[in-house]
Deep mutational scan, measured.
Amino acid sequence: TEYKLVVVGAGGVGKSALTIQLIQNHFVDEYDPTIEDSYRKQVVIDGETCLLDILDTAGQEEYSAMRDQYMRTGEGFLCVFAINNTKSFEDIHQYREQIKRVKDSDDVPMVLVGNKCDLAARTVESRQAQDLARSYGIPYIETSAKTRQGVEDAFYTLVREIRQH
C-alpha cells in the first residue's frame, strides 16, 4: 500500500529536517529553504509493509500558489509548527483551512506536530497545542528532528489516521 503524505507549515519550522531524519536517519543542521522535494521510503507499520511517498513543501509565502496542487494529491498532512515560534503555531489554522477548502472536506487525515521540542526556549505550551488538536479532532505529537524523538511516531500516526479514514 502506498501513502501520499504531505508536510506543511511555516518556513523554518523543520519540515525538511523531520523528513530527512525519518528517511535518512540524520539531522540536517543548516537551513536551506525548500521549494519542493519528495522522498520515498518502505516501512512496516503495524505489520503492514507500506511505501511512504512524502512531499516536503515550501513554507515560504512566495510558493503558496503551489499549495493547491499538492493538497489535492496528498492523502494525509503533517501540519508542523516549531514550539519556539508562536507565529508558526498561529499559521497552522490557515494551512488547515486551505487543506479543507482544496479537499472540499472537513475530515482530512492530519496530525499536528510541534517540532524542536529539544529546545528550552518554548513559547507554545503543550497544552495550547493539545487544545488546538482536540478542537480539530486530530492527534498532537511533539518531535525533535535533532534527537529523533517522536519522528517515526508522527509519520506513522498519520498513516494510521489515513487507514482509519
Rank of each mutant, 00 (worst) to 15 (best):
I138D: 07
E62F: 15
R96K: 07
A58V: 04
L52D: 00
H93T: 09
D131V: 09
S38A: 01
V28D: 10
D118P: 08
K100V: 06
K41W: 05
V28C: 00
I45D: 10
I54Y: 01
R163I: 14
K41T: 12
Q60L: 15
A133F: 13
F89C: 02
Q21G: 13
S126G: 12
Y31G: 02
K4S: 05
D104K: 05
L52Y: 13
A133I: 10
T49E: 01
M71H: 04
V7G: 05
H165D: 14
L112K: 12
T57I: 13
E142N: 09
A129G: 07
L119M: 13
D131I: 10
H165R: 13
Q130A: 09
H93E: 06
E30I: 10
V43P: 10
D46L: 12
G14M: 00
I162M: 13
L5T: 02
D131P: 09
Y63K: 14
Q149N: 13
V7N: 02
N84K: 02
Y39H: 10
S135R: 12
E152I: 04
Q164P: 10
R148Y: 14
V7K: 04
E61N: 11
H165L: 10
L52P: 09
G59K: 13
A154K: 02
G9Y: 01
Y95A: 09
I99Q: 01
L78N: 02
D106R: 06
H26E: 05
F89T: 02
E2K: 01
K116W: 15
G9N: 01
V111K: 04
A17G: 13
L18S: 05
M71V: 06
P139K: 10
A65E: 03
E90M: 01
V7P: 02
A145R: 05
T34V: 00
T34I: 04
R122L: 11
V13C: 12
D37V: 03
P109F: 05
F155D: 09
E30P: 09
L22P: 06
T49I: 02
I83A: 13
S88Y: 03
M71C: 02
E97A: 07
S16M: 00
R101T: 06
E142D: 06
Q69M: 08
E61V: 12
V108W: 01
D118R: 04
S144N: 15
G59R: 11
E97D: 12
L119Q: 15
V44C: 06
E61C: 14
H26C: 10
A58T: 15
D68I: 05
F81R: 02
D29I: 04
C50V: 02
V159R: 09
K100R: 05
H165T: 10
H93I: 00
K4C: 07
T143I: 15
K41D: 14
K146W: 14
D91W: 10
V13P: 10
L5K: 00
M71D: 14
K100Y: 02
S144A: 15
R101W: 07
G74I: 14
E62M: 07
L52C: 05
A133G: 09
R127L: 12
D68L: 06
Y31L: 14
A58F: 08
L158R: 03
Q21T: 13
Y63C: 15
V159P: 06
L52F: 13
I141H: 08
V80K: 04
Q128M: 03
M66E: 14
V28I: 12
L51V: 05
F77K: 01
E75V: 06
L22T: 15
V108F: 04
D37H: 01
Q42G: 05
G59P: 14
E62C: 06
L5C: 11
A17S: 00
E36P: 01
S135Y: 09
R127P: 11
Y156I: 13
R148Q: 14
R122T: 14
R163Y: 13
I35D: 08
E152G: 12
N115D: 09
Q149D: 10
V8Y: 14
D53R: 03
N84H: 11
S105I: 08
T143C: 14
Y140F: 12
E36Q: 00
F155T: 12
G114D: 02
L55K: 00
R72I: 01
K87Y: 04
A58I: 04
I99D: 00
G74W: 01
S16T: 13
S126C: 10
D46K: 13
C117T: 13
I54W: 05
L55G: 14
Y136G: 10
A145D: 03
V102M: 07
Q130T: 12
V6E: 04
D153G: 10
F81C: 00
F27A: 06
N25L: 04
I99V: 04
Q128G: 11
E142P: 11
E30A: 08
G12D: 15
E30D: 00
V102R: 02
Q164V: 04
T1H: 02
T123P: 12
T34C: 02
Y63E: 14
R148N: 13
T73L: 06
G74H: 04
S88G: 07
L52N: 07
H93Q: 12
T19E: 10
E75T: 09
D32M: 08
D131R: 11
K4W: 00
K4D: 01
F27T: 06
